[in-house]
Structures are given as C-alpha cells and as structure tokens.
Design a protein around this nucleic acid. Structure first.
Length: 198
DNA sequence: AACGGGATGGTT
DNA sequence: ACCATCCCGTTG
C-alpha cells in the first residue's frame, strides 16, 4: 500500500508516479480495482482551477490537511475522487481521471448499468460510480490501516516499459496553457473519443 | 432565499 | 451541440 510519504511530494510528481498504480475499493464488502491510467494535478497558489484557491471552506478543508487523504467532491450530481498531496496548509491534490478495470468487473457493470468495459472507469465520475466512491469517502485516510480505499504500488506491467504523456486538463477553462494532465500513452482506457464496439 | 456555475456524462 | 441535475459559494 502506498504510504503518506509517497503522497507528500510535489503534486505533479505524485500525479505522474500514480500512473500504473492500482486503486482498490473494498466498499460494501466488494473488491473493485483498476490501474490508474490518467491523472490531473491541481496546484496551490497560482492555479485558479484548484478549488483550494477559490475558498477555504468545509468543502475544501481536507486539501489543506496532510497528504494521502481523499478529497471527494460532488459535481453535476456525480462525484470526483482526488488524493491530497504535499504538506498541511498547502491546498492541492491529484484528480484520478481514468482506470483500466482490474478486479470486480461484474460489480462495476452492475453499479454503472452498462456492459461496455470502456464505459466503466474512463472518466472521473464513471470510476467513482464503478468503485462505489461517494461523499462518504471524503476525508478518509487512504494510507490508514483497514482503509476501504487505498492505492498499491505500480503494477509490474509498467515497471520497465511505459510512456507518460501530458496535455492541458480536461474541462477547465483556465490555465489551458499548462500541461497538468498525465496519462499512459496508448492505453485504451484513457479518456477521449469513445469507440463504439458492436 | 435566490441565483449561477461547475475538475461530468449521456443524448441529439 | 445540448441539457439533466444538484451542490456549493456568493449575494441580497
């Protein structure tokens, strides 16, 4: 399991280091998991897209706490899952945008109500639904013992041969010049155009 | 109390 | 390109 030390580095560094790692959920007694293939960094300070820079309120408070805690926020009646980075008082986090399904695929299909593998965990709100992540997970310590949600070290498949690419973040209108989105080159579960399979 | 926008996703 | 849907921060 990844420790607080892992997440207590610069947000960009953590966003890149998380690629290829395994995100596990044991919510409701079911294990679902996926390999992280796409992330985004949200920085403290001169990054107007980061919620922590807009207001320090009950909602964003967890981002100002220690690294390795979950920041889950609701948007458009859905949820997005982030992991807090750096050190206390520095409000920043990494958004998990897409996974390659790895375990509990039947349960994911049930939770999502679709069969297409590509529609299970590609997209931040989709993966939350597949893993059963909602407001309840907000503020949880992912590096704590017995945590229902945690991250495992990089999968063997990605220890030697893999390439990280970057781009501007998806859906943000500010800082479009900054390449703060990171993804595994060529992985079919990275968000983008959906290819319908018949 | 009212209002407007959003780190989305599914449909037209 | 449009919009369902709802939470949150701001304003009055």
């Amino acid at each position: 399991m990844l420790t607080r030390r892992f997440f207590s580095r610069s947000t960009v560094e953590v966003a890149q280091a998380l690629l290829g790692c395994r995100l596990v959920s044991q919510i409701d007694g079911v294990t679902t998991a996926g390999l992280i293939v796409e992330t985004e960094a949200y920085l403290f300070g001169n990054d107007s897209a980061c919620h922590a820079n807009k207001a320090r309120t009950a909602r964003t408070e967890v981002m100002f706490g220690p690294a390795g805690f979950a920041y889950v926020y609701p948007i458009h009646a859905k949820h997005c899952f982030n992991i807090v980075t750096e050190r206390p008082e520095v409000g920043c986090a990494v958004l998990i945008r897409a996974l390659e399904p790895n375990a509990g695929i039947e349960q994911m299909k049930q939770r999502r109500g679709v069969d297409d593998l590509r529609r299970l965990t590609t997209g931040p709100a989709c993966l939350c639904q597949s893993l059963g992540i909602d407001r309840e997970v907000n503020g949880r310590d992912l590096s704590g013992l017995n945590s229902e949600v945690y991250v495992q070290t990089r999968n063997r498949r990605f220890r030697s041969k893999f390439e990280i690419k970057s781009s501007p973040r998806i859906g943000v209108t500010s800082a479009i010049d900054r390449p703060l989105r990171f993804y595994l080159a060529g992985n079919p579960f990275v968000s983008g155009k959906l290819k319908l399979r018949h």
